[in-house]
């Protein structure tokens, strides 16, 4: 069974690149254009990994992560955060202790896949 990944990213080009990279790798990908749309996908179905941007309209990355972690089924799923700023204080505070790893944008696709594969082990 392919693993299910939710990708939340408002910037279209980035999201499309990520989705196509993951699809090629054989993963089952669900896309969301903002945090709110992504949060709605966490409705009890099996989700193995969340990859999310930080700055998004409607619901930002920190709020999304908080919402996901509050649901029993998703307390321990791996979450990868995409950021341009590594460890900016604001982000740091918001999600410290809640995510698995940071992926700094822009990223190289083989590095990205390596991290995703590792998170899904």
């Amino acid at each position: 069974m392919p693993k299910n990944i939710v990708v939340a990213e408002d910037f279209n080009t980035s999201r499309k690149i990520i989705v196509s990279t993951l699809t090629k790798e054989g993963y089952n990908v669900m896309e969301a254009v903002d945090g709110k749309e992504a949060a709605e996908l966490f409705d009890g179905r099996t989700i193995d990994l969340l990859i999310t941007d930080f700055n998004m309209p409607n619901m930002n990355g920190a709020e999304l992560i908080k919402a996901v972690r509050e649901k029993q089924e998703y307390v321990y799923i791996p979450i990868l955060l995409l950021t341009t700023e590594v460890r900016e204080d604001k982000i740091q505070q918001a999600i410290e202790g809640n995510i698995t790893a940071w992926i700094k944008k822009p990223f190289k696709s083989d590095h990205f896949i390596k991290i995703v594969n590792k998170a899904l082990r």
């Binding site: 307390v75 321990y76 791996p78 202790g97 809640n98 995510i99 698995t100 998170a119 082990r121």
Partner: peptide, 16 residues
């Protein structure tokens, strides 16, 4: 202590 909450699968790390 919070390693699981970070979504890290500790067992799989040891396995690796």
């Amino acid at each position: 202590n919070n390693i699981f909450k970070r979504g890290i699968n500790f067992e799989s790390i040891l396995e690796e």
